[in-house]
């Protein structure tokens, strides 16, 4: 079995998703969690674009459209998450969620 180029990118997307998921669960610092969410999202985008590439003669436009709008939405979600994290820090003085506060230090 030869490794098709799309398969390499799709598997890299799955890998990014897994790395992000691990960091999202295992790390306590809020900035790391937000970064982890972004890494997961990038993995999903990479996967969608790779899947679209399988189509002949031109790439499937529908996953491309989903990624295109998804990038802007993920930037907005990151902005909102950063504002929430900043609020947590100004309120509690710590950049961790309250339930992680003892174990995270």
């Amino acid at each position: 079995m030869t490794l098709e180029p799309y398969l390499l990118y799709a598997l890299a997307g799955v890998g990014l998703f897994a790395i992000g998921l691990y960091a999202l669960i295992a790390r306590t610092h809020l900035l790391r969690k937000i970064l982890a969410l972004n890494v997961m999202g990038t993995g999903v985008f990479l996967f969608l674009v790779a899947i679209a590439y399988r189509s002949e003669p031109v790439a499937d436009p529908v996953p491309q459209a989903m990624v295109l709008t998804g990038i802007v939405v993920s930037v907005c979600a990151t902005g909102l998450a950063l504002a929430l994290a900043h609020r947590v820090q100004t309120t509690t003085g710590r950049m961790v969620l309250p339930e992680n506060d003892e174990s995270g230090a």
Binding site: A10, G15, Y22, I25, R54, S55, D60, V62, P63
Partner: peptide
């Protein structure tokens, strides 16, 4: 848990048909 999930997802990706026009 994450490695198991990644393995399952990777297996699912590999089992996709090589060519698919999707909605193109």
């Amino acid at each position: 848990f994450v490695l198991t999930l990644a393995g399952a997802l990777g297996w699912a990706v590999c089992s996709l048909p090589e060519y698919s026009s999707g909605l193109a």
